[in-house]
């Protein structure tokens, strides 16, 4: 973003950026990033709401989603798809990453979490941390694929450039001091319908009702004839699919992916989920946008090297002083 800003002002006319423009720019960047964080945060909050597990592996699942997207871009030569083909490419990437991440998340639940139901919660958390590490390592090896998009596979650990399939053109005209690109618009166009759809799913469908029932009391839900394991599995599936969407949006928006990005983004998203009130879907969205704004403002007005500490500081302060978050209901540990 900053780079494109500099390029624009050099080539056209020296546009002086007033403090208001700078602030607006930070807010735009913040909201766009915040939407992506929110989409990942929903995956955390859904899983926490239903089995009280901090699904550590969720961020790294998203890493794998964007690696899959980059592989597809390389294998199908998507950089050359012009015009309507470009839109088709983006849609293909979104759907395949969503299917892949959803299926993978379901499998992880089946293999690593389901056998531990009814065991101490910490065992589940440890297993999730283990899954996270396995996924990170898979992403590291994936980056070593001998493909051109992965830099020939010689530098497996290095960050990978993601081709810019979406134009970086300023929608407000090249002379405007504030930049709103197609990418910012793209983030909103994809995330908002997904969030609305998810709300509808949880509020109005049979599956959503079952999810809420299991979240409230798994035993009672089972007695009412709900297949608890299937409902939990679908929760992982949906959360993972949203993470898959987010991973592609992230890659297209930031143009760079690395095998470690899931840890960082995942922690941002988890912080967002906690800040909004873990277990609450609107909370995850609000928290995501707040974290996106905080990151942008901290980068812009404080120092970028402290931004991660600021986010973790917010996480700790929220947990200590208001564990129920902004929108969450008062939580009580089940005895």
């Amino acid at each position: 973003m900053i780079m494109s800003q500099a390029a624009v002002s050099e080539s056209v006319a020296p546009v002086a950026m007033g403090w208001g423009d700078v602030l607006s720019q930070q807010l735009i960047t913040g909201v766009s990033n915040g939407m992506i964080i929110a989409l990942i945060a929903i995956g955390y909050t859904m899983v926490y709401g239903i089995i009280e597990l901090i699904n550590f592996a969720h961020g790294d699942l998203c890493t794998l989603g964007s690696f899959l997207a980059l592989t597809l871009v390389g294998a199908l030569g998507m950089e050359a798809w012009a015009g309507l083909g470009g839109t088709a490419a983006v849609i293909t990437l979104l759907i395949s990453a969503a299917v892949f991440c959803g299926a993978l998340n379901w499998t992880i639940d089946r293999v690593a979490y389901r056998p531990l139901r009814g065991k101490p919660k910490l065992a589940l958390l440890v297993s999730a941390i283990g899954c996270s590490f396995i996924l990170v390592n898979i992403a590291l090896f994936w980056g070593g694929l001998p493909m051109e998009v992965f830099g020939g596979g010689n530098q497996a650990a290095a960050p990978k450039d993601f081709p810019s399939l979406i134009s970086n053109e300023n929608l407000l005209g090249a002379k405007s001091a504030i930049t709103v690109t197609w990418r910012d618009l793209f983030v909103v166009i994809v995330t908002v319908p997904l969030m609305i759809g998810l709300t509808w799913l949880v509020k109005s469908t049979r599956l959503g009702k079952a999810m809420r029932a299991v979240a409230q009391n798994p035993t009672a839900a089972a007695l009412m004839g709900i297949d608890v394991n299937r409902v939990i599995g679908s929760t992982f599936l949906i959360g993972g699919a949203l993470g898959g969407f987010a991973s592609v949006i992230y890659a297209l928006y930031n143009n760079t992916i690395s095998f470690q990005m899931g840890y960082r983004t995942g922690m941002d998203a988890f912080t967002a989920a906690v800040l909004g009130g873990i277990g609450s879907l609107p909370g995850a969205v609000v928290g995501g946008i707040v974290i996106g704004l905080v990151r942008a403002l901290s980068d812009g007005y404080f120092e970028a090297r402290w931004t991660n500490s600021v986010v973790f500081g917010i996480l700790i302060l929220t947990l200590v002083f208001r564990p129920s978050g902004i929108l969450g209901a008062k939580l009580r540990e089940k005895v």
């Binding site: 690593a112 440890v126 297993s127 941390i129 283990g130 899954c131 996270s132 590490f133 396995i134 996924l135 990170v136 390592n137 898979i138 590291l140 090896f141 497996a156 650990a157």
Partner: peptide, 12 residues
């Protein structure tokens, strides 16, 4: 490059 995998598998 194998450490993450080993640690992860050990935990799971």
């Amino acid at each position: 490059n194998w450490k993450y995998l080993v640690f992860g598998l050990v935990l799971v």
